[in-house]
Design a protein around this nucleic acid. Structure first.
Lengths: 251, 251
DNA sequence: ACAATAGTGTCTATCAGACAGTATTCA
DNA sequence: TGAATACTGTCTGATAGACACTATTGT
């Protein structure tokens, strides 16, 4: 099967984004409402075509900025605002009824944004708790989410992205990507609790994260709160891998 | 950025395969010699175009069978002969000098094959120790591997595949994919040692793998050897995730 | 003082790492 | 009986899980 670039089946290549954040103690994903067929009116993951001379990751970063205003690369030496990584590629022949489309899905972890839809065009965009988006509606609580499933195979892509995020914060310091530049141990713990959907022991969690070298760096500052001891502020350290990992309870 | 399938940049989509096995106590990858430009005469990963009505994983399985005769799907209820999973997608604009090619790389873990090149066409195919293939030639021993680097960005793809395999046998039972249907604890340990490039304590390894529920199932049989106590034979159990994981020494 | 949140100390069970000895085969 | 390989037992240090107390703020 030698390469024969003169005769190849034509494909369209897109990037789709699973953009996750933690809002109000719930893991949420960014979804956009489709304005045209197919799946008109249904919610879908943001995404778009890869341009002719554009790298895959560049295309994902561009779509991210267009949709949320977030930047995943360092602009002018500033710290990144979001983590972006490739997730997986989806290319079933009939996943788009119009033509053969191969979609390279990317995963974005972002801190909670002040404005829900800062940039981008005027389409309907929202953060939705991931439990309310899944087909099976296996939400944490009993009430079924009466909502049409996501367009295309985006339910599968979202599930894969959520599972990647859930497993990756076990053995990496990536949970800090859900936090603002400075955060407290309690805020970081609530990120873990929201992503995993479990309650963690505050004492053991504190010992674990502060005892792992390079995970957290104290900034010296403290929070100002109403009623309660001020909490120490940290920023993410240089360590990326956690050894030993943070164990997800779920047994 | 609404979908506009009538005007999209044309892409070719291929699958490339990182096929790994353990031979003579070394982790080896399958490489083919290119018979035409570009990179004529250089070694490359096996791969080929995805057909017009073909799923990505189907294309990868087809290429695998064409190259090695291995099957990754269950043929007629028989056990699989190799593990296949999607690895990552590579789509830099200039990765192929002829045109825009997006390659969906797949990772295959296979047991050592009796015949080096059972199926496929007559091209030059071989198993090569992965250390001898890497650009930097950071082989285990001192001797530099004087060999042209792999074609295209296949050095990067191979590195990613090897790293995936190395990390995945930590927390999954996937190392059994490198073994024949029945194997001994010592053979499984030598797989770990070859993939990680370290020596493991036989006693602790035996305790770990036999103590993890669902990892190994004794078949009742024993090996016949020359000089030495016969070893108990096992097959892979139903468990796929290892909890707690097998820890890679490397500290 | 009281509420509210942040942080610390201790015990225990589990497990990885280190190490030495016994068991079963063939020559 | 000796060589070769397979398997088992035990100690120790590190750590996760469970749990109760002290510390620092605002009201």
């Amino acid at each position: 099967m030698p390469y024969d670039p003169s005769a190849f089946p034509p494909f369209a290549v897109t990037v789709d984004l699973v953009v996750l954040t933690v809002r109000k103690h719930a893991l949420c994903a960014l979804v956009v409402r489709r304005g045209e067929p197919p799946y008109q009116g249904r919610w879908a993951l943001p995404g778009g075509f890869v341009r002719a001379e554009e790298d895959l990751e560049t295309a994902a970063a561009r779509e991210l900025t267009e949709e949320t205003g977030l930047r995943s690369q360092h602009p002018e030496g500033q710290p990144t605002e979001a983590h972006l990584e490739q997730l997986a590629t989806y290319g079933a022949p009939q996943r788009d009824p119009r033509m053969r489309v191969v979609s390279v899905a990317h995963l974005v972890l972002a801190p909670d944004l002040p404005a829900p839809t800062p940039g981008g065009d005027a389409r309907s965009v929202r953060w939705a708790p991931v439990d309310s988006l899944f087909d099976g509606s296996d939400g944490a609580d009993g009430r079924e989410a009466e909502q049409a499933p996501l367009a295309f195979d985006h339910d599968r892509i979202l599930r894969d992205g959520v599972e990647r995020a859930r497993s990756k914060i076990e053995y990496s310091s990536l949970a800090t990507a859900f936090c603002p530049p400075e955060f407290t141990v309690g805020e970081l713990r609530r990120v873990y609790e929201a992503v995993w959907g479990v309650a963690l022991d505050p004492r053991n969690f504190h010992r674990k994260v502060t005892g792992t070298p390079g995970f957290l760096v104290p900034t010296g500052g403290t929070t100002t709160r109403q009623g309660g001891r001020p909490a120490q502020l940290f920023r993410a350290g240089g360590a990326t891998l956690l050894n030993p990992p943070m164990l997800r309870p779920e047994v």
